[in-house]
Design a protein around this nucleic acid. Structure first.
Length: 566
RNA sequence: GGUCUGGUAGUUCAGUUGGUUAGAAUGCCGGCCUGUCACGCCGGAGGUCGCGAGUUCGAGUCUCGUCGUGACCGCCA
């Protein structure tokens, strides 16, 4: 028997018991006459003691043990004379009478501690060692608990988990597919699913009513801190539902998770905000509502005043940063170079300081007098002591730049509180999006998304203005999930493919199986998919999902531990 | 595809205007130490400055190329 207890469970109750523990040597402290060893396993740390007076031979042996050796130690549980209140087992220690080395260890390339000395790259190469560290271990435990609670909730709501295939067929739209050659069908390929979309719709046609799956999805696109080529979704679909039914069901899931995992009560209806409103007020479809600094358009207020920069553009807008009127020239210059860097793309930045005495200091004093600036102040809702930042240009890109500036200011002001959670449903997404490369519209969500009934007539004359029954759940500026009410009518789906520029033949080749299924009685249905990695990272307080995945890929899609792809 | 960032000891980093033997911390090794828990004290070892070329009397430092890192833009139905 390797152990009678684990390293995290012994307490003052166990004093005088003879126990055996197994684990890794976290640290040893040799004081000459006695030696202490911290023994670690997944469950915790327990201190072992060796004394020169009582057992010099064993004490000498213990001193020779190196970091990360795997040993088995037997002895008696004893109350400590010096207690350590920082660890759960800190009141006791084991007076060891026997040790067995189960496995030796070379020196690890970095320290296995909460605050390791190892950098990103070396920890990725030795990921199995990195995972021994407390923070990563805690992340994976969090992930496990969340998956379990997701299943609990969805089961209680009568959802059933059904697996769908990973070897499927390539689809024309959306992200690039990963492809897998077929040995038995030479020259032909499977594609790995970007999502189980069509299969879950088929399951609705099969009558399963409520489906879910915690499932891997694959997209062959460039990576980010919050994007991996293989990632996990909580994929869900329901029959006989309208949009509001889906929102309420999954708002329930999110509330259940916050309650059970973080003991946070989100006891209110999550706000719903139309896409257009989100874009105008925040410059993005995933606004972070933890702080204000909303964007206000002031185009009509500032044009025809002789300032060419404003007169020649179709949009001027700004934000008001609270308490920033004291920003130095250098700080303003930094903001200017932030917005003019290629990633943000603004041409320049106008600032107006609203001084504490109510006077103004701006970069456009030549063109705008105090009365004019007073109007800006009113429009942007700036108070004394605030700093107004104004950008101008083409509407879409300027809003995007203002959004980036708003987030940058929030970071500078340190007002992104990890302990506050502001959920938001963004609704009424456009059905279609113009693609300049292919010179045609394509589905913003996916081609199975239904248009709003009242907008259907616009499909012919103004496709870009048609709204969809599509929705995203955004929490703290992170897109956590998205979904839609689907088309369940064969004719309507056929028309949708036509609008998207599919020939009848292409639609038949790609989605004939779905179109056929629609012939045999399809229930109205809709669903949603949550980015599970992002959800776990959000709960863990991180913007990067990498540390919530056991074996992630790096920036270039490589696993530098196993050296794949190869 | 693009922008930015950084590559120096096992590890994390510093390294001035191009100039003597490339430093610190931590880790490691040795010695001392009987209540430590970031143990302490003393001593020691440890470097192809990512790689290649160039400029120069002289390159960790400047130039070009190349490889790999991270963040972002494009992309991600």
């Amino acid at each position: 028997m390797y152990r009678t207890h684990n390293c995290g469970e012994l307490s003052i109750q166990n004093v005088n018991q003879e126990v055996t523990l197994s684990g890794w040597i976290q640290k040893s402290r040799d004081l000459g006459g006695m030696t202490f060893i911290d023994l670690r396993d997944r469950f915790g740390l327990t201190q072992l003691v060796f004394n020169m007076d009582t057992n010099s031979e064993l004490c000498e042996k213990a001193r020779k043990l190196g970091r990360e050796f795997v040993i088995q130690a037997s002895g008696k549980v004893t109350e400590r004379s010096n207690k350590n209140k920082n660890i759960p087992t800190g009141e006791i220690e084991i007076i060891v009478n026997k040790i067995i080395i189960l496995s030796k260890s070379e020196l690890p390339p970095f320290t296995i501690e909460t605050n390791t000395d190892g950098g990103e790259e070396i920890r990725m190469k030795y990921r199995y060692l990195d995972l021994r560290r407390e923070p990563l271990k805690a992340n994976l435990l969090l992930r496990h608990r969340m998956a379990k609670e997701v299943r609990n909730y969805l089961d209680s709501q009568k959802f059933i988990e059904i697996e769908t295939p990973y070897l499927i067929k390539s689809t024309p739209e959306g992200a690039r597919d990963f492809v897998v050659p077929s040995r038995m069908n030479e020259g032909q390929f499977y594609a790995l699913p970007q999502s189980p979309q069509t299969f879950k719709q088929l399951l609705m046609i099969s009558g399963f009513d409520k489906y879910f799956q915690i499932v891997k999805c694959f997209r062959d696109e460039d990576l980010r801190a919050d994007r991996q080529p293989e990632f996990t979704q909580i994929d869900c679909e329901m029959s006989f539902v309208e949009q509001e039914d889906v929102l309420l069901t999954f708002e329930g899931l999110v509330k259940y998770l916050f309650n059970n995992i973080k003991s946070i009560d989100l006891d209110f209806l999550f706000p719903r905000m139309p896409y257009n409103e989100a874009m105008n007020r925040y410059g993005t479809d995933k606004p972070d509502l933890r702080f204000g600094m909303e964007i206000t358009e002031i185009t009509s207020l500032v044009q025809s005043k002789g300032f060419k920069v404003f007169d020649q553009v179709d949009y001027v807008g700004g934000i008001s940063a609270p308490g920033c009127s004291s920003f130095s020239r250098k700080q303003i210059d930094q903001l200017t170079s932030f917005v003019t860097q290629p990633q943000v793309g603004a041409k320049g930045m106008v600032y107006v300081k609203v001084n504490e005495d109510g006077s103004f200091k701006s970069s456009v004093d030549k063109f705008f007098d105090e009365n004019a600036l007073r109007n800006w102040q009113e429009a942007l809702g700036a108070s004394k002591g605030d700093l107004m930042l104004v950008l101008a240009g083409e509407k879409g890109s300027t809003l995007a730049a203002l959004s980036a500036l708003r987030l940058e200011m929030a970071s500078k002001l340190n007002i992104k509180d990890d302990n506050i959670f502001k959920p938001l449903w963004v609704v009424d997404f456009p059905l279609l999006e113009w693609d300049d490369d292919t010179k045609r519209y394509h589905a913003m969500h996916h081609p199975f998304t239904s248009p709003k009934e009242e907008d259907v007539e616009l499909l012919e004359k103004d496709p870009g203005s048609v709204r969809a029954n599509a929705y995203d759940l955004v929490i703290n500026g992170v897109e956590i999930g998205g979904g839609s009410i689907r088309i369940h009518d064969r004719e309507k789906q056929k028309q949708m493919f036509e609008h998207l520029g599919f020939t009848e033949q292409e639609a038949e080749n790609q989605f004939g199986f779905l179109m056929n299924a629609f012939k045999y009685g399809a229930p109205p249905h809709g669903g949603i998919a949550f980015g599970f990695d992002r959800l776990v990272a959000l709960f863990g307080g991180s913007e990067s999902i990498r540390d919530y995945i056991a074996f992630p890929k790096n920036n270039s899609g490589r696993d530098i531990m196993i050296e794949s792809p190869s």
